[in-house]
């Protein structure tokens, strides 16, 4: 049941994209998403597509892998495509079947929209495929650091996230164990109506939660006895460091923004 949960879907590697500072990647991804909504006209989309393509090629992530990650939203893509295709009115009528007319403008809007959604999905997937969840947590902590001045619990939040990530495999293992134990005593998780199956999960969830609380308690004691006392005065073994490649990546991101904004004016 839980075998198909992949952890953050990280594909380890040692390419240029993998080695980039996670902060750079996070910032670039956010920037890319914003610029994606500024894009207008064929040329700006071409630039956006080219930029992401270069990143994908550099990361050596297979296109099929990337696209299969977009599978869950194929339905949404098709629906938005069809709606835009039929409901956009324009001047150049392409053809008319019964009461449905398709205009050239509709085809354009639908095409751009699908491309936009695909690019959106692919750029976020590229981030999670090439960055381990732990690095992402670190990057988030570093980027949110200024909020500490506003008493926002940045360190606590990232500690919680990294502990949650650490315990996912442990809890999955435990779930499997409890399921086997309940199955051995005749529990049935797979058949029956939705209501019955939901009810059957109760004897699974209760021991799981009790176990999780016990773990949390023990972990807190263990952390305390290793001198944990919050984020204050804490150092880090692995400091995030910006290399030349990171600055180059950020500059190219800025160039992308400028290019798209200019093309938007021109187009």
């Amino acid at each position: 049941m839980f075998k198909d949960i992949t952890m953050g879907q990280y594909f380890p590697g040692n390419t240029l994209i993998h080695r980039l500072d996670p902060r750079t990647k996070l910032v670039l991804t956010l920037l890319y998403i914003i610029v994606l909504f500024l894009a207008k006209g064929i040329w700006s989309y071409a630039v956006m597509l080219a930029f992401l393509s270069v990143c994908v090629i550099l990361s050596r992530i297979k296109l099929s892998v990337l696209l299969s990650g977009a599978k869950p939203i194929v339905f949404i893509i098709i629906i938005t495509g069809i709606l835009n295709l039929f409901y956009t009115k324009g001047e150049h009528l392409l053809f008319r079947v019964w009461r449905i007319s398709v205009y050239l403008e509709g085809l354009q809007t639908a095409g751009f929209l699908i491309l936009r959604i695909l690019l959106l999905i692919c750029c976020t997937l590229l981030l999670t495929y090439t960055t381990s969840p732990l690095q992402l947590t670190d990057a988030m902590e570093a980027l949110l650091n200024p909020l500490k001045k506003l008493r926002f619990p940045v360190h606590e939040l990232s500690m919680m996230m990294s502990i949650a990530l650490r315990f996912i495999p442990t809890l999955i293992k435990e779930t499997d164990k409890i399921m086997s134990a309940q199955k051995a005593r005749g529990a049935d998780f797979e058949t029956g109506s939705l209501r019955q199956r939901a009810k059957a999960l109760l004897p699974l969830l209760i021991p799981l939660f009790v176990g999780a609380f016990r773990r949390a308690d023990e972990l807190a004691t263990a952390m305390e006895s290793r001198c944990y006392h919050g984020g204050e005065g804490r150092t880090k073994m692995k400091q995030l460091r910006m290399a030349a490649a990171d600055w180059a990546a950020l500059v190219s991101g800025a160039a992308l923004t400028v290019a798209v904004v200019l093309l938007r004016r021109a187009g």
């Binding site: 732990l134 990294s162 650490r166 016990r214 023990e218 972990l219 263990a222 290793r226 001198c227 150092t235």
Partner: peptide
């Protein structure tokens, strides 16, 4: 052992204590 390991990588976990006492990087 499962309930006292904090980090998702072995060496990060070993570094947890020294990090807590603010040892120099």
């Amino acid at each position: 052992p499962d309930n006292q390991i904090v980090a998702s990588v072995v060496e990060d976990d070993v570094a947890f204590g020294p990090e807590n006492i603010g040892m120099e990087q």
